[in-house]
């Protein structure tokens, strides 16, 4: 028996997210009297793979294959299914990110294993497997029962946390059977911004809405974000207007995020926006309308003009950093 975690790598490195997934799986494994096996696909150095042991993994299966150039949903599904069989896994854990969303549903069909996507906590019980997930775009929670012998979950990033548990870990090369015909997509071109903090990875997010009045005023959002080591985001009207790129849009139809601190500047907080950010641990709202719904979701609020408040906030953060 085991709990299998698919640990994606980014240019051969793991992220906090990887360690969070292992920590999460470790709590499940303890409850099931089972162990955590991580599966890595691609070139990752042994020292890096062994880091997963710091969070509870007892074994890391490492798949290195010449033909794998990037994510091919069918090939990855096939590899993970073979790992599940080999390790007799009863629970499979993915991140609820682009990769998890691409592979987990295919694996669910392949293994006839029920999939609960976007969970935020460990299962409340295992007989039957019962876990809470957000529904209606974070406006409600549902207790979901999985009626299959193997269960798959995708964990929403930054909702469980990282727990260090030093564990002796072995790295094992794994050679699954892969047929050439299974490769059905090929990556022709990659365009990537480097050096920018990703919205989904960020612990702090500074986000602007229509109250910012225009793209020319975004300098203060960017300056505050850079001071705090934060990512920048925006509300839907802002990305629809083309003031900011659509990948910054947070909310119901954009990115769903759960940072430690979310600063909403000039965002009224329509129900669709709150659906994407309500998982944040702390929300700060700055808006000139005292009745804006964002204040109902916020922990701290300032009723005032964002274009006046933000520069003062920048000055105060600088002062704090210098003290």
């Amino acid at each position: 028996m085991s709990v299998l975690v698919y640990t994606e790598n980014w240019d051969g490195k793991f992220k906090k997210l990887s360690f969070e997934l292992i920590s999460y799986a470790n709590e499940i494994a303890k409850k099931l009297n089972s162990t955590v096996v991580a599966l890595s696909i691609g070139n990752v150095a042994e020292d890096e793979l062994k880091l997963l042991g710091n969070y509870g993994a007892t074994k890391v299966l490492s798949v290195v294959h010449d033909k794998i150039k990037g994510l091919d949903n069918q090939v990855f599904t096939s590899i993970i299914a073979q790992a599940v069989e080999k390790e007799k896994s009863t629970v499979v854990v993915f991140a609820h990110n682009n990769t998890g969303k691409a592979i987990a549903p295919r694996l669910s069909v392949r293994l006839k294993a029920g999939l609960v996507a976007g969970v935020t906590a460990v299962p409340a019980s295992f007989k039957p497997f019962t876990v809470v997930k957000k529904v209606f775009t974070s406006k409600a929670l549902s207790t979901v029962v999985v009626n299959t012998p193997v269960q798959i979950v995708t964990l929403l990033q930054n909702t469980y946390g990282i727990i260090e548990t030093a564990t002796p870990v072995v790295v094992e090369a794994f050679h699954p059977q892969i047929q050439d015909a299974e490769f059905t997509t090929d990556i022709k071109e990659v365009s990537k911004v480097t050096g920018k903090i990703l919205l989904t990875d960020a612990e702090i997010v500074v986000s602007g809405g229509r109250g910012m009045k225009g793209p020319e005023n975004w300098g203060v959002i960017e300056e505050l974000a850079s001071l705090l080591g934060a990512a920048t985001a925006c509300s839907r009207p802002v990305s629809d207007e083309g003031w900011r790129p659509h990948d910054e849009h947070t909310g119901q139809t954009g990115k769903v995020i759960a940072p430690n601190l979310y600063i909403a500047a000039g965002i009224s907080g329509a129900i669709q926006h709150l659906g994407g950010v309500s998982g944040s641990k702390c929300i700060v709202a700055i808006n000139k309308d005292p009745d804006a719904p964002i204040f109902e979701a916020a922990d701290y609020g300032i009723v005032g003009d964002v274009l006046k408040v933000l520069p003062e906030m920048i000055a105060a953060v600088k002062e704090l950093k210098n003290s």
């Binding site: 294993a113 207790t143 309500s278």
Partner: peptide, 20 residues
């Protein structure tokens, strides 16, 4: 189906916003 959605609840309401 693989799943059954057995029950629902609304998220707990947050403590009041601290105004500055």
């Amino acid at each position: 189906p693989f799943l059954s959605y057995n029950s629902f609840e609304l998220p707990k309401s947050k403590a009041a916003c601290k105004k500055i």
